[in-house]
């Protein structure tokens, strides 16, 4: 049986013009030839460092940045859209089906609007309700699901803690009744004590409302606990992609392994420094030839420096590395 995919991409590419003169504009490929399938009802994780292209991928799937190459489709069973060519009424309809939860709940909420108005705004902008009463009813309903009460709705964002603010952002994202939600580092700015609460809330809302998430994060331990599938990105490419259990039981790509060993251990006696990654992610305007990770990879050979490995799938576990089998 094949799972039904909500989002499917083939060689998805997002490029931005940078510098150069009129006739030899350079292109920065933030997302470079990505093929993924996000099954309906899944919690799909995307992991990588700053500059890996994970945010751009999320935005492209929301049609918030133009897709410059390849294909991306959205199919929720009711409608099927080609995301690269979406416009007009279809685009409007897609906006209500696909939504974004932001990273920083302090920056994402207008300090001059009440919580009720913040959550109601998408309904009003998209014209989804006929009367103020209907709007209020929808706002109250979604607010309750996000554990916000009537008293909260009358207040302004400054009166709330980080966790409460993030619940307000989530309510706003969900009020239009989306099927697909991109959560971009949605717990990164929160305290650990609150992080777990927001992750649990996202999980509960998923089963209650039938949502499909694309969960973007740089934190593998958070992804491990929430997502059922994880794709690891590096410099605009997917280097490894697998169901969470498989990935965590036996990571194949040296980059994924390095991300694991970078997580600070809670054991004070486990302060070893093996497998720490040297250096930083290269600039996307000046990408290395061959495997893009070879400049930081402890196992790189001459082959890695010249030829780029392709993503190969074996046993439902995809990896793009010339040497993964020898390194197991």
């Amino acid at each position: 049986m094949t799972e039904e995919l909500l989002i499917e991409t083939r060689d998805l590419t997002v490029g931005f013009p940078v510098g150069g003169r009129l006739f030899n504009k350079k292109t920065l490929k933030a997302v470079d030839g990505i093929s993924i399938g996000i099954p309906r009802g899944s919690f799909f994780g995307v992991v990588g460092e700053s500059g890996s292209g994970k945010t751009t991928l999320g935005r492209a799937l929301l049609n918030a940045v133009p897709i410059t190459g390849g294909h991306a489709t959205y199919d929720d069973g009711e409608v099927r859209y080609d995301l690269a060519t979406l416009s007009g009424g279809e685009l409007k309809d897609y906006r209500k089906r696909a939504q974004l939860i932001f990273q920083d709940p302090y920056a994402a909420l207008s300090p001059r609007m009440t919580v009720r108005d913040i959550i109601a705004e998408p309904l009003e902008v998209m014209g989804l309700t006929a009367s103020r009463e209907e709007t209020d009813a929808r706002v109250r309903e979604i607010a309750a699901k996000c554990r916000l009460n009537l008293e909260h709705l009358r207040r302004f964002p400054h009166a709330f803690s980080g966790g409460q603010r993030q619940r307000i952002s989530i309510a706003r994202a969900l009020v239009s009744g989306p099927r697909f939600v991109v959560a971009d580092e949605s717990v990164a700015a929160l305290d650990v004590s609150i992080q777990a609460d927001i992750l649990n809330l996202l999980k509960n809302l998923q089963s209650e409302l039938g949502l499909t998430y694309m969960f973007i994060s740089h934190d593998l331990s958070v992804v491990a606990h929430s997502c059922d599938h994880v794709a690891v990105m590096y410099l605009g490419r997917i280097v490894e992609s697998a169901p969470t259990r498989k990935l965590f039981a036996a990571p194949r790509h040296p980059y994924t392994k390095a991300l694991f060993s970078a997580i600070p251990s809670l054991d004070p006696d486990d302060r070893d420094r093996a497998q720490k990654l040297e250096g930083e992610i290269p600039s996307p305007t000046n990408q290395p030839p061959g495997c893009k990770f070879h400049t930081r990879c402890p196992h790189a050979t001459d082959l890695c420096k010249t030829r780029e490995p392709v993503l190969q799938t074996e046993g439902g576990h995809a990896v793009a590395c010339h040497r993964w089998q020898e390194l197991l």
């Binding site: 593998l220 060993s261 600070p264």
Partner: peptide
């Protein structure tokens, strides 16, 4: 910082 840079 990113986890990799944090470790460094």
């Amino acid at each position: 910082l990113d986890v990799t840079i944090q470790a460094q």
